[in-house]
Design a protein around this nucleic acid. Structure first.
Length: 218
DNA sequence: TGCCAGGCCGGGT
DNA sequence: ACCCGGCATGGC
């Protein structure tokens, strides 16, 4: 079976097992972007508390996030960890949004996909995974998101070598799948689900893989 | 209790 | 071009 076939088959197995994951959990593109920053190396549970604080304070608008100080913001996002850094990252993004798109997310997402990706990557605090999460989950653009789970899950299943780079990992998916934002959305979420439940660090050989057809053994 | 969570940056080799 | 320490809270 070719690698592309395995990638497609793997998705089918994941979807059959877990079904749709409902990502991104959030009410608006802005909430999604803030969540993407706050969840850097942090569990979603902690992020939910931080988002809840922001909502409760009425700060979850581009305008309010532009007005609040980094210190005030840090206090509110405290439960998500790395709070001083994350407050600055959010401020950096909002500054960029104001400068380049007049504070309008709608305008931002009319930008060319690869141009916008480069712009996002130039913001201090936004790296490849966060940029791609914003493009896919906030903007609905067909970009495949790669994260720590993607490496672990795919290398454990023998689909890619462990040293695969971020760009190569994206190609593995985009070369094998239709360019479909809905599919990319679901696939990434399903990988995270499997990673959390079975392909954990503490389970180095993914003992008890829940998939009927485990690509590892092909 | 200790380890880990949906990264990224900056400085050192 | 890699490698590593720093950043930090909360859950299991």
């Amino acid at each position: 079976m070719s690698r592309s076939e395995r990638i497609r088959r793997f998705y089918d197995e994941l979807y059959k097992k877990y079904g749709p994951q409902g990502w991104w959990p959030g009410d608006s593109p802005l909430e999604c972007i803030v969540g993407a920053i706050l969840t850097q190396s942090t569990s979603w549970k902690n992020v939910e508390k931080a988002i809840s604080n922001l909502k409760g304070s009425g700060l979850l608008t581009a305008e309010m996030l532009g007005l609040v100080t980094a210190e005030e913001l840090a206090a509110l996002v405290r439960p998500s960890g790395y709070y001083n850094q994350k407050a600055l990252k959010i401020k950096n993004f909002i500054s960029f949004l104001g400068a380049d798109y007049g504070g309008s997310l709608e305008r931002m997402f009319t930008e060319d996909k690869s141009v916008l990706r480069e712009k996002l990557l130039s913001i201090k605090g936004i790296g490849p995974e966060t940029a791609d999460s914003i493009l896919l989950y906030a903007g609905g653009m067909p970009v495949f998101v790669v994260d720590a789970y993607t490496w672990r899950v795919l290398s454990r299943h023998g689909i890619v070598p462990a040293e695969t780079t971020y760009a190569e990992m994206q190609e593995v998916f985009t070369d094998s799948l239709d360019e479909d934002a809905g599919l990319f959305n679901e696939y990434h979420a399903l990988i995270v689900r499997l990673g959390k439940e079975h392909c954990k660090k503490s389970n180095p050989v993914c003992e008890g893989c829940p998939l009927e057809f485990d690509p590892h053994f092909v």
